[in-house]
Design a protein around this nucleic acid. Structure first.
Lengths: 200, 200, 200, 200
DNA sequence: TATGAATGAGTATTCATTCAT
DNA sequence: GATGAATGAATACTCATTCAT
């Protein structure tokens, strides 16, 4: 990597980091591009060399945050050897994410209901670059519950359940609707278990 | 309803209608309060006699749209006498909503993932004013699948499943993620069925 | 005229005046809308209640300046009773304008080659409101040189000759091209005389 | 011409061509230096090695376009042997230019009223390099109409008439003021003839 | 109640120009 | 000479909100 290219990446990174901080601190609407550049110690115009507009940064950050939450949860769950079945593992992953968001509602407010699930094609394309997701999918595929289903079917199902949890998580934690998160968890996890149960 | 009160409601209504049209036409962000008042044929200042700010109108409209979609779907499903079990009915209701949103993506774009479910307390409070929801809940409660569950538990479960469907509906129709809506429907409906199946 | 309408006209006027001063002082390009409003002692947003954008003010001012130059010249020439024929009068009017612009090159710089001739239709429409132009045209029409020509033909001819003079005036005074204005005058006035001579 | 010098001229040329295209496409105001360099396939900084700023390019192009229009018209008129007198020739040249601008209003919009007449001194300085203009002037000088006039007087007269035509051409074609170009032509050409008629 | 003129803070975005490589 | 990343000043324009009438 040439020095110049390295510096560019560094700047892009600085802008993303600055934007993230500010988005959490005061929300996306109340963060101006100028706020971002001044915190990133970069000139205003430089912003537009790296991003189309504020929306593009937000989108990039949504992806980054989602991915981080997901991968941290996966890593944590991998340690817990007592979890044997795939449904149990999925519940544990979701629970890990929910707990993280409950602790850090600023992140939740930024994320809203817009959790970005890594695309199936992305996962497949980046075999080795994305070992985590890859491994996860392998685990899933080989689980008895999923026997007889295609990779795509499984992905659809997991994604739908995940969306449910993120959506409920948002309104539950931030608005207490339809109930507080502690009350919703059993419902969500029961649905997951039932939805992933072995086909009879 | 007195004439004075009637006129007030009329204006409020005109503002809501104008805002709704504009929100669909150009999106909420690109609609100004002035746009709304000028379409409603009302002076700019008048807006603030009826609403706190633009956000309040949006919120009111989200509720209105959600309620309309839901009640239309319920009414349509009530006609279909062949549907016996509650899970079948719920799937039919959701399907009705999804189809409506698929036909009218402008509404979907306005709604985003923010479908507003009528609150359980609201339903209970407005016994007669809200006959539809009331009736629905009664039907649900008396269905064999729900035996042994409290009203609240049922409400949580339905809401969670509904949120899942709306969330998936949004990204599926508008972004094709994780797949097109036709491919997602079987997954969603299978999850609903499993999640609402009779307890063994 | 109601007070409110009066105040509006006053503001519009203040904006035009402020803009005119600034356009002469530093040129149109280096004058910002903010400069104009701050000199007019009016809020920034107010500008946009009266004009579409900076270009609209410029256009309005070009019309105003042109009209003023023309009417002052006409009035001055009307005094000079020794001028009998229409061509002589026209030359005198043009010369008056040229001299005014030579004295005040700031105005000339603002005007560039964009002198706005009062439209024939405008003149006709505003019979009494525009006594000057009206009178002028009557004089012209009744002059022996113009016998047998329609009003429109005369207007075209006068306008063309006027445009020539303004265009030459601009490059001559400001750039000395094709020669200084003193050298160009005889040429211009000779052309006018020949172009307006009695038809044989 | 050395290779190095050739390459420089090539780049200058590329920049001019790119700027010309863009000026016609979107107007001078909406064309940035970056637009120009990127179309010319040259780095942004390179622009400033060849031109002071955008204005310099505009000026250079105004001269180029004017010259091209004029010389094409002259060449075309030279063919038409039936035109004997100088006034007829001048009218034919102007008419050729007007028709060209009428066909290509983009060029007219770029040119505005700023047609650049080749300077008398330039013509004289570049005896052989500028054979066209030189020849033209010779023709003019020897025409009976111009007998008794100095070269300079003739140049002034022609230039003034030309400016009139270009100015009228602009407002006539683009704004229809004071009338459409077809209606203005007879007026313009009559003025030219009268202004260039043999002295009695 | 209703009006709509006035406000002025707020922000995105552009772009000419520089300069280290 | 050539590059193109970085700069940051400059500006137009929007719009929610107020308030005198």
């Amino acid at each position: 990597m040439s020095t110049v290219e390295g510096k560019k990446q560094e700047k892009r990174r600085a802008l993303l980091d600055a934007a993230y901080e500010l988005f959490l601190e005061r929300g996306t609407a109340k963060t101006s591009v100028e706020d971002i550049t001044s915190r990133a110690k970069v000139a205003k115009g430089t912003f537009y060399l790296y991003f189309q507009d504020k929306g593009a940064v937000m989108q990039a950050l949504l992806g980054r945050v989602s991915y981080q939450l997901l991968s941290e949860a996966c890593m944590a769950v991998e340690q817990q050897t007592e979890l044997q079945t795939f449904p149990d593992k999925m519940v544990a992953v979701i629970d890990h994410i929910i707990e993280a968001l409950r602790r850090d509602t600023l992140v939740l407010k930024f994320l809203e209901r817009n959790f970005v699930w890594p695309g199936l094609d992305q996962i497949e394309a980046s075999r080795d670059a994305e070992p985590l997701m890859r491994k996860l999918l392998t685990v899933v595929m080989s689980s008895p519950e999923m026997v007889g289903r295609t990779e795509r079917e499984i992905y659809q199902r997991i994604t739908a359940l995940g969306s449910m949890c993120m959506s409920v998580c948002y309104s539950s934690i931030l608005e207490g609707k339809p109930d507080d998160i502690e009350a919703m968890k059993p419902v969500l996890y029961d649905i997951i278990h039932k939805a992933l149960a072995v086909q009879k």
